[in-house]
């Protein structure tokens, strides 16, 4: 079994997703069966194969260094669940 309780907790923490114990149980089961299933890829020899990241064969397009300020802070903050004095705001962070 690749995914145990510790592992699921670790990846849930990395993903910043809170799971209740029922969900954890379910996901341990699901993830293990998915990982077992994808392991069939090990049947293929990929020793000299280049990984494919993007299908596009063209070159990275680059833009000119022109600055345009077209968005007001109101527009940027419009959908914010919480904003104060032109800032987004979140619970206090202690560094």
């Amino acid at each position: 079994m690749k995914i145990d309780k510790n592992t699921i907790n670790k990846i849930a923490r990395l993903s910043r997703i809170k799971l209740d114990s029922k969900e954890s149980e379910d996901y341990i089961k699901d993830l293990n069966s998915i990982l077992d299933w994808v392991e069939q890829l090990n049947e293929i020899n990929t020793d000299n194969v280049e990984p494919l990241t993007n299908i596009s064969s063209s070159v990275l397009p680059k833009r000119d260094d022109i600055s345009e300020d077209i968005h007001s802070s109101e527009e940027i903050l419009k959908n914010a669940p919480e904003k104060i004095e032109g800032f987004f705001s979140v619970p206090k962070v202690v560094e």
Binding site: N42, I44, P51, T53
Partner: peptide
């Protein structure tokens, strides 16, 4: 083991 492997297989499929 997983992501890189999958990208390589993706290449083979393409």
């Amino acid at each position: 083991a997983y992501y890189l492997k999958a990208q390589k297989v993706r290449k083979l499929i393409a």
